[in-house]
Design a protein around this nucleic acid. Sequence first.
RNA 1: CGGGGUGUAGCGCAGCUGGUAGCGCGCAUGGUUUGGGACCAUGAGGUCGGCGGUUCAAAUCCGCCCACCCCGACCA
Length: 569
Amino acid sequence: MRLSKLFGKTQREIPAEAETASHQLLLRAGMIQQLAAGVYSYLPLGWRVLKKIENIIRDEMDKAGGQEVNMPVLQPFEMWQQSGRDQALGKVLFTLSDRRERKLALGPTHEEVVTELAKYNVQSYRDLPLLLYQIQVKFRDEPRPRGGLIRVREFLMKDLYSFDADEAGLDISYQKMREAYQNIFDRCGLPVMLVEADSGAIGGKDSREFMVVAESGEDEIIYCPGCNYAANAEKAVSVKEKIDNGKPLPVEEVATPGAGSIEEVAAFLKIPHHHTLKAVFYIADGKLVFVVIRGDLEVNEVKLNNQLKASELRMATEAEVIKAGLVAGAASPVGIKGFKVIADDSVNSGTNFVAGGNKPDTHLKNVNYPRDFKADIVADIASARVGDKCPGCGGILASTQGIEVGHIFKLGTTYSQKFDASFIDKKGESRPLVMGCYGLGLSRLMAAVIEQNHDEKGIIWPLPIAPYQLYLCPLYKEGAKVEEVTEKLYAELEAAGFEVLFDDRQESPGVKFNDADLLGMPIRVTVSPRTLEKGSVEFKKRSEKESELVPLDGIAARLKKMVTEFNSV
RNA sequence: CGGGGUGUAGCGCAGCUGGUAGCGCGCAUGGUUUGGGACCAUGAGGUCGGCGGUUCAAAUCCGCCCACCCCGACCA
């Protein structure tokens, strides 16, 4: 491709809209262009990258036994009501009406449709296992799109769905996908971390996310440097230390004038935070929920909602707390009635806690569970934190930010039961299909690659997904044979099967080198009067500082070797 | 949805106490240049986000709305 003809211009200035590295560089390189919040066009260079990623994914999906299909983006809204996910997804689901006022949704994911598809095409265990996938645009009306391609409302995603006869079969499909995913990320030159995750509105188990470590990542990963424990902070668990506070004593009232928060109460009574229990109030689908947790811990809302299964969960306002007849600052689970009480299992981690007294400026000493109050549910609903003990090896947990590029998990029979998708097993009995679901965001993957592979000059594409392999860069000078040699070289290299971006513009060397660095092709081939004097051209890898002179004859052979080396890394 | 910010040429920005819009980059033409964003000359390009109000007069003051960005909430 001749750069002089390429659609899309590079920009010197950093666009004011962009903050993350990948966003800035994609815009400056002329690879994407924004149309609306979280909606982008892909220009030729960006689109080539996406197609390369797509081909790698397709290759690995096919190798793992997947069959490619294409399902509708436009879906009847009733389907979402049938699965109940119109509620779970809420406003994230884009909806519209057709001319007959029938409500439709733009597909944010395809469990419903694929289950419907399988229902009519799978009758027997002989049809299983079945792996169906597609690479297609998805629509999600995000509350807040951000970071360029990191979180968008219209994006390319690969989604594969596995269908098996039983759990054992699902385990095999799941394992295959896990390996295929690892292969994909390896081939894209992207180191990933496999972490335990929550499965969200879809529901399911063995939920794992493939995370790319990046400062700009939206997810916090809690991991253990000592063993291989790693989890999304939404899901992460840590050891809750036992608090030794003596044998249970009788409950005792104590005046705590002016002390409301745990901070104040602990300071007033001169006790550590972990000798207290705090009450936190949430509104779950309009109802107030009373949450009890040890004073030094924080409630993890994802874990909390996994217990409550509410479609809308938020903290209660102070007004709502007061209206419910509770004493803000001194509310206590002891003696409380008429509320759903959820306790973190840390209430069992010690004895003689200080809790609210349900009277202003009053607290209770020596509160013990379950002697003094009962919870409807006792479960782990606390956030694991950096510095906590690892549940695996007892080491100290650390954290980092990550971008979720892939998510795999087991759905089981949730959807096959809702949509009555069953098959006849060996014994002639009808059974629901056992499903798994595996998503991978292409646009986001592209952004993540840049987050991990760039410098102050620009992008450094891993060779397998670079828009072009070579940046052919002649430095024209009258009288020298640069043009003649480069034109010939360009033709030769293309004939030899290389993907060449040929900077045939009449620009100064500075402009060309800077654009070459910005655009990030893996190998730059410079032809100039200086190199021609030595009968050579210059090779420079984008990822390295040094360049080398290579004799004119045998360039193609030399490049073949370089490309092979690149690919084997 | 709450908080903060920004909308002026393709991009980055200036434009005070109102007087009818400017700079740099880019773009076009001509010329001189050519190993890290060169230089000279000439030129094109703007409903100042939108609507309404105040005023003789609004990019500028006031009101409403919209869009986009950041933080939070939320997040398949």
